[in-house]
């Protein structure tokens, strides 16, 4: 099993962070993982994105180029840019709070998650990214939510451990939001 997912949004929406969490969680589960960020001037302002591969086999190319199995898009430019990178039958998870549009392709499965609203329900708009990750995990089951929570302090440090409960709630809310599709 191999998942190749692109995560994209505005800088500051936390797409790099959820990518690292997913990669770390995969590593905890003894899977092969790569995390590849965009870098350079394009990361200042503008769109930030990263490509994560989680696989049972050693990973060849860490790049995603028309062969992504999924994309998580938090803003409109990301939808427009990355829907092209997914294979037919792949998944695109769209942040409905900020994107009032649908993919132009019909051969991919779109899932709409009002991530910002759901995050606000938990009292923190900053965790919209975790809501999106939760939705992705529910759809793919690539790693367990517990592994992501285990990864949390590894990625953000022990002093952020107190944020685990609210992040867990965010993951679960995201999962809940796409259950209607299944």
């Amino acid at each position: 099993m191999e998942e190749k997912v692109i995560m994209a949004g505005f800088g500051g929406q936390g797409v790099m962070a959820i990518g690292r969490l997913l990669a770390y969680a995969g590593m905890i589960e003894n899977k092969h993982v790569t995390w590849l960020p965009s870098y350079g001037p394009e990361m200042r302002g503008g769109t930030a994105n990263c490509a994560v591969v989680v696989s049972d086999e050693p990973i060849g190319s860490p790049l995603i180029s028309k062969d992504g199995t999924a994309a998580i898009v938090l803003n409109l430019p990301s939808l427009l840019k990355f829907e092209k990178e997914i294979i037919p039958g792949g998944k695109i998870i769209i942040n409905k709070s900020l994107i009032d549009a649908e993919p132009s392709r019909e051969d991919i499965d779109a899932y709409y998650v009002p991530a910002n609203e759901l995050a606000m329900e938990l009292g923190n708009s900053k965790i919209a990214n975790m809501v999106m990750l939760g939705a992705y995990l529910e759809l793919t089951k690539i790693v367990k939510i517990d592994s992501v929570l285990d990864a949390f302090v590894k990625v953000f440090g022990e002093d952020k451990a107190h944020l685990i409960p609210i992040n867990k709630e965010a993951l679960l809310k995201g999962a809940e939001a796409v259950k209607t599709y299944v």
């Binding site: 590593m27 092969h32 993982v33 790569t34 995390w35 590849l36 860490p62 790049l63």
Partner: peptide
């Protein structure tokens, strides 16, 4: 190369 420099792996 820059890609390996920026990439994360276990």
């Amino acid at each position: 190369d820059g890609m390996i420099g920026q990439m994360m792996e276990a």
